[in-house]
Design a binder for these strands. Structure first.
Lengths: 196, 196
DNA sequence: GCGCAAATTTGCGCAGTGGGTAAAGTTGCC
DNA sequence: GGCAACTTTACCCACTGCGCAAATTTGCGC
């Protein structure tokens, strides 16, 4: 990776950090693109070269995490069935990131929850991701990617991960995140008949 | 309901219709708020009194449908467990609406899928709804609304309904929607282990 | 080192948006 | 009929996303 691309990645990260920090401090609506650009030492116009909207700048961390998740899933053992691969990848990613990342994660989730515009954008991104996941699951189960089952698994998985984070936050982070994550994935994987 | 409120509801509906029609005809981005307002015979400023954003005007149909769904769930037999109540309400709502509503539904879903901004907003609205559903499920299963299980059920249910509609569209509406819906809910309700 | 093509940043401008404010117009009710 | 409450509207302003072209920076062969 040349200097050009490295610098670009650096700037993107700086813009993201600035956007996230300012949003936490002042609230999403109170932060203008200009303020973010100033904090990251670029012009307002250049901000638009990096992100199509303020939301994207704040959520870029999620974006990155999501890309990693997809990578992890692709790297799971070839024979592993879809649901197991999804769950395995999520837990793998979590422990790889280390507990230090928890605080970042918590911050992003809190911000996304507080501001509907951010929540919406985040879910929109996830919906796009859902298709990629479905493709991976389909290939593992010998199904068509447009079939119902792979799409159900992908959607259920994303919902389980999202809920785990929310519940973890609601519990004031009193349990380790991976414990909640395991519980959430397990609950989603079980059938939903009431007799338990 | 007095004349005042009746007229207001009428206007809201007219604005929604105009927004949806213009979006289908021209594409979401090519339609300005001003054009919608003109088509609905109100001023641009009044548009803002009815909807906070263009997206909301286009998606108002979804909003209404969602409200009805919540009503249906509340009216399900008291003893019925959570998942069954959700599924029952969805199917009930579908057959009550009649097949004529299918075309409307298809149109809205197509529009929402074509335009990321609409998709995002729609999912954001659903996330808010998710909590209401979780409350209902929790009360039926004697759990706390903040607990994991009711939230999982609510999220899984919404995802299943959403996917059913998408798959139905992908299949060019060759099967009746309720058939796909049943299949989707069933698949989501089953456990996800690969042996089937 | 040097220069030049390619990529990146920036300033400027424009159409569009969301919302505050206050004036003008409606409606419900006594 | 009149008045209080509500709704619509015009006007305005800060902000956004993006096209365009000039200025700047970078990569690379020489």
């Amino acid at each position: 990776m040349g200097l050009r691309e490295r610098k670009k990645a650096e700037t993107r990260q700086a813009v993201h950090q600035a956007a996230l920090r300012l949003t936490v401090e002042l609230g999403f609506d109170a932060v203008t693109v200009e303020a973010i650009a100033d904090a990251a030492n670029i012009s307002r116009r250049t901000f638009s070269n990096y992100f199509a909207a303020k939301e994207d700048a704040v959520l870029y961390g999620e974006e990155q995490r999501i890309q990693e998740l997809v990578e992890h899933i692709r790297r799971r053992p070839a024979g592993e069935p879809g649901w197991a691969a999804l769950c395995g990848a999520a837990l793998e990613l979590y422990e790889e990131q280390g507990v230090a990342a928890d605080r970042e994660w918590a911050m992003r989730t809190r911000v996304a929850r507080r501001h509907p515009a951010l929540l919406a954008r985040q879910l929109g991104n996830q919906a796009l991701l859902e298709h990629e996941l479905a493709v991976e699951v389909a290939s593992r189960e010998g199904l068509d990617a447009d079939a119902l089952r792979p799409r159900i698994l992908a959607a259920a998985f994303l919902a389980a991960v999202r809920l785990a984070t929310l519940v973890w936050l609601d519990e004031r982070e009193s349990r380790p995140l991976d414990e909640v994550l395991r519980a959430s994935l397990a609950e989603m994987g079980e059938d939903f008949t009431p007799a338990r």
